[in-house]
C-alpha cells in the first residue's frame, strides 16, 4: 500500500491502495503539530494503512483517514 500526498498521481499510475497524507515533504508526519500529536497522527495513518492492506480492491482505491476535531 502507498502513503502519499499526491493522490492524483498515485491513482493515475494505478497504485491499488492509497492513504492520503498531508504534505509532499512529510508523508508520515505533520510538522504543524506538537510531537505527541504528530505521532498520534502517524499512528492513525498507519492504522488506516493496515485497514487498506486487509481490504479487497479492484482498482486504485483511496482510503481517507477520517477527520478528527483537532485539539
Amino acid at each position: 500500500m502507498l502513503l502519499c500526498n499526491l493522490i492524483s498521481i498515485a491513482e493515475r499510475v494505478g497504485a491499488p491502495r492509497i492513504v492520503p497524507t498531508r504534505g509532499i515533504p512529510y508523508p508520515t508526519g505533520d510538522p504543524s503539530l506538537t510531537p505527541e500529536a504528530e505521532k498520534a497522527w502517524r499512528r492513525r495513518l498507519l492504522d488506516r494503512a493496515l485497514e487498506a492492506l486487509a481490504t479487497t480492491v479492484h482498482q486504485p482505491t483511496v482510503f481517507e483517514v477520517p477527520e478528527e476535531a483537532r485539539a
Binding site: 508520515t28 508526519g29 510538522p31 499512528r43
Partner: peptide, 27 residues
C-alpha cells in the same frame, strides 16, 4: 522537495516508531 522536515524527524519519511507500536500492540 525541502528535506528540512524529514531531517528534523526521519519518521516523517519512514514511520519506524509507529511500526514498533503496531508490533507491540499486536496489530
Amino acid at each position: 522537495f525541502s528535506t528540512a522536515y524529514a531531517n528534523d524527524d526521519p519518521h516523517r519519511i519512514l514511520p519506524l516508531d509507529v511500526g514498533r507500536q503496531l508490533v507491540a500492540d499486536g496489530a
